[in-house]
Write a protein that binds this DNA or RNA. Structure first.
Length: 547
RNA sequence: GCUCUCGUAGCUCAAAUGGAUAGAGCAACAGACUUCUAAUCUGUAGGUUAUAGGUUCGAGUCCUAUCGAGAGCGCCA
């Protein structure tokens, strides 16, 4: 809460002198008459100096210009009412207020798609959460780099190449549809045919060793796959700064292994390298034939990134089932002394169908993302067939993003297209509609709102509710940033949209006889538009111009 | 078998570091459109937070046990 930072610092000083270092955090007040609350004193209610602390707090809060009124209850909950007049002047400065004091370089790793497999429903959350965190960190002033981190290496691709070789498929004329059919066939064969398995293992080793003949085939397949992935990403409005893959760090691995061994950090066990860090289960670094694993390339990827950029913090946006892998990765990065940078596994739950089972097609495959997009787009056409394609696309993506981000990322949720495209309720369409409504109102008014100042005395209940809703922006923004949880902002965007709709519905604004009332409402609508746009930016949603 | 996560209104989900009376949306019910506005708004009802104990000024949140669900577990990524 940048605007109340002085207040917070002063209160923290009091605590520091009396009961020890403790940070003050504001929360939304339980009491609807107030905006924020401070709970730090509640647990001190039996402290021998509580009366002194209370009076120091009172004095400090009393002197804070942004606080209009406050109360300290008999159990020492502190409630604060913000002075709307002083705070409202700052609405248009919100972008400055949310900047952090110490910007960092943050890398977002999407734990990307594999070669040979189309983008499917399983990739949706990684894309949405990653994009949202990218925007949130950027708005907070960090410098952010996104890396799709393609799964372009290892056994899956070796299986595909082996399958193509064995079935004598013409690799020159292969297309994406062929490739997508080959992948499941190859992995099926790998599981049941030992001879095929040996051939694939051998091919994988050749890949690791940079065998030029197999690299040529690999390159061909990778290009086909990337082209298809880019088409889907384009439909869904996603872009990446880096298109690195696991293959890009292959050359760093032999040296890395050698160094770790000479440092006594890893040792051979049944021919495979395992970490000497005591851990259960043991951490496997390479396979017994010397070829590399998921963890091997992820470790080398970190080395590669640190070599190329100064990175303070890395976020891995990967589903929660891979928890053990990232636990092992982060443990290993520490144990191997790769640096003191931060690494976080931003885990998320799975998307299920309405019965709670993994979201699949009738054939039992994961549903393709591009098909999900098309179905959503079609559903929106049913609601309004007059929309141009551009608007339809934005709305379809709004639905796929908002419905995903409104749930806490760790929760598995049920995908229900009918529900998510509902025009009323907590949906993407609803928040877009409120935005369009506000814009239409201002455009129809022919009044220059930028020159209007609020007339506080003439604000009615619905105006005040919306203004006091907007005061919470910094709170929710921080919550999302600190915890890497975009859903707080999705929920908040709905709350503001709902408050706007209430105000709007309440009375006819443009025909209001009293000019100050009319101007107030137009000014508040202008604020709402900028807040709504900013929240959509945080979520990775583009506002539409008409609906 | 071991490890981890989860169980909140009929349904789908919220509730940061333990804080006051556990909140939204959908569905249900009752209302509001010759309008800048219905792709909307207003109201009502809906809960022993799986169960039983414990920790403390205070527990959906922490601990223990039971029941139920899901995931992961050295040569896939």
């Amino acid at each position: 809460m940048y605007q109340l930072l002085n207040l917070i610092n002063n209160l923290e000083n009091v605590l520091g002198k009396t009961v020890g270092v403790e940070s003050i955090s504001l929360r939304i007040s339980n009491n609807p008459k107030f905006d924020f609350q401070i709970n730090n004193l509640v647990k001190l209610q039996n402290h021998k100096h509580i009366k002194d602390i209370e009076s120091s707090f009172s004095e400090i809060i009393d002197n804070e210009a942004l606080i209009k009124s406050f109360e300290i209850t008999d159990t020492y909950f502190i409630n604060l009412e913000i002075d709307i007049e002083k705070f409202s002047n700052s609405f248009d400065k919100i972008k400055k207020y949310i900047k952090v004091r110490h910007p960092k370089t943050v890398l977002i790793d999407y734990g990307g798609p594999n070669i040979g497999k189309p983008l499917h429903v399983g990739h949706l959350r990684s894309l949405n959460i990653g994009k949202s965190l990218y925007r949130i960190y950027s708005l907070a002033g960090h410098s952010v780099i996104s890396d799709i981190h393609m799964g372009d290496w290892g056994m899956p691709i070796a299986q595909i190449i082996t399958y193509i070789e064995e079935k004598q498929i013409d690799i020159e004329n292969i297309n994406i549809d062929d490739l997508e059919k080959i992948y499941p066939e190859a992995s099926k064969l790998y599981l049941k045919d030992d001879e095929f398995k040996d051939l694939a293992q051998a091919n994988n080793k050749r890949l690791n060793e940079n065998n030029s003949k197999i690299l040529k085939k690999w390159k061909k397949l990778k290009n086909i796959s990337i082209k298809s992935i880019k088409e889907t990403l384009d439909a869904l409005n996603h872009r990446f700064d880096l298109w690195m893959g696991e293959s890009d760090v292959n050359h760093l691995i032999p040296e890395m292994i050698q160094k770790l061994e000479s440092e006594g950090k890893i040792s051979l066990d049944d021919g495979a390298y395992i970490s000497n860090l005591v851990s259960e289960p043991k951490i496997l670094i390479t396979k017994s034939d010397g070829s590399y694993l998921y963890l091997t390339t992820d470790l080398a990827t970190v080395l590669n990134r640190l070599k190329q950029n100064k990175i303070d913090k890395t976020l891995y946006i990967v589903d929660k089932r891979q928890n053990l892998h990232f636990e092992q990765l982060i443990k290993s990065l520490n144990y191997f002394d790769f640096g003191d940078e931060e690494y976080h596994h931003i885990a998320f739950g799975t998307i299920n169908d309405s019965n709670g089972n993994p979201y699949k097609t009738r054939e039992g495959d994961a549903k393709k993302l591009i098909n999900l997009f098309k179905e959503t787009s079609l559903q929106i056409k049913k609601i309004n067939s007059d929309l141009d394609d551009g608007t339809n696309k934005l709305l379809a993506n709004t639905v796929l993003t908002f419905s995903d981000l409104k749930t806490n990322r760790m929760t598995d949720y049920k995908f229900d297209l009918n529900k998510f495209t509902n025009t009323s309720g907590k949906t993407g369409i609803y928040v877009q509609y409120a935005f369009v409504r506000a814009k239409k109102l201002l455009n129809g008014s022919s009044i220059n709102t930028s020159k209007i100042n609020l007339n506080i005395a003439d604000l009615d209940e619905s105006d005040l509710s919306l203004i006091r809703g907007m005061i919470k922006f910094e709170y929710y923004f921080n919550l999302a940033l600190e915890n890497n949880e975009p859903h707080h902002l999705a929920d908040y965007l709905y709350e503001l949209s709902n408050l706007f709709n209430s105000m709007y519905q309440n009375q006819n604004i443009l025909e209001n006889k009293k000019e100050t009332v009319k101007f107030n409402k137009l000014k508040i609508s202008e604020f709402f538009i900028s807040y709504s746009a900013l929240l959509m930016e945080c979520l990775g949603i583009e506002p539409v111009e008409k609906m």
